[in-house]
């Protein structure tokens, strides 16, 4: 069973419907006691970094996530949910993230190397480039996925970067370390490749259950 963390931010409906299409049982909850029983967690998120961290800390879910990750439970952050996994963000000031992965979150500058302006948010379908093997991209081909974000991760370690895309520079798109994963795009809105990436995360969670 997958636990979708409902802390008041995020398009929970779409993620849950995607899991239904994959025939995966799930719960949507903000209660630690319930989420504790999940075999793997999904941290969705749409909105501002600051508000999201505030809600996570008010509910104690930040502490819970640390404990669960230390205990070896897989975690997938999606979009803002991925950014929250990192150390800090410059969105609306400086705010500490969950610090589960190394790196920080910065705004797209909107100005390219030649001094020309470019559009922010990074919105639309962009192609993935894979950097290293990971359970998430296992058996998949580099195709397009749907991005919509104004902030991106930077300063990540090379062993964390699974896939990137190119938008006036290299943008981390899939990150992963041990059992902690993140996707900057919305897999549930990214066609067949998006659904396959989500399915790979589910398979990773299931395989852990079997070996446990």
């Amino acid at each position: 069973m997958i636990g979708i963390i409902d802390y008041g931010m995020g398009n929970l409906f779409s993620v849950s419907k995607a899991l239904e299409r994959l025939n995966v049982p799930y719960i949507i909850s903000d209660k630690k006691e319930e989420l504790k029983h999940a075999d793997g967690l999904i941290l969705p998120g749409v909105g501002a970094f600051r508000d999201a961290m505030k809600l996570l800390s008010e509910t104690g879910l930040d502490q819970f996530l640390h404990e669960e990750v230390i205990a070896g439970k897989p975690l997938l952050g999606i979009c803002l949910g991925m950014q929250l996994l990192f150390e800090e963000s410059e969105e609306n000031g400086f705010f500490k993230g969950l610090g589960l992965l190394e790196g920080r979150v910065v705004h797209f500058s909107g100005i390219d190397q030649d001094g020309q302006t470019y559009k922010v948010p990074h919105m639309g379908w962009n192609r993935l480039t894979f950097h290293q093997p990971s359970p998430l991209v296992d058996g998949l081909k580099e195709e397009h996925v749907y991005f919509v974000h104004s902030y991106h991760v930077t300063g990540e370690t090379s062993d964390e970067l699974v896939a990137s895309t190119d938008y006036f520079g290299q943008v981390p798109a899939v990150v992963g370390k041990d059992k902690i994963f993140g996707m900057q795009f919305h897999p549930e809105k990214s066609g067949d490749l998006g659904m396959s990436l989500l399915e790979n995360y589910i398979r990773f969670v299931k395989n852990l259950e079997v070996t446990a």
């Binding site: 409906f13 419907k17 995607a18 239904e20 299409r21 919509v148 990214s190 067949d192 998006g194």
Partner: peptide
């Protein structure tokens, strides 16, 4: 909206 979101994986 619910029905479209349930069935399709595009924004």
């Amino acid at each position: 909206v619910e029905e479209v979101a349930s069935e399709l994986a595009i924004p």
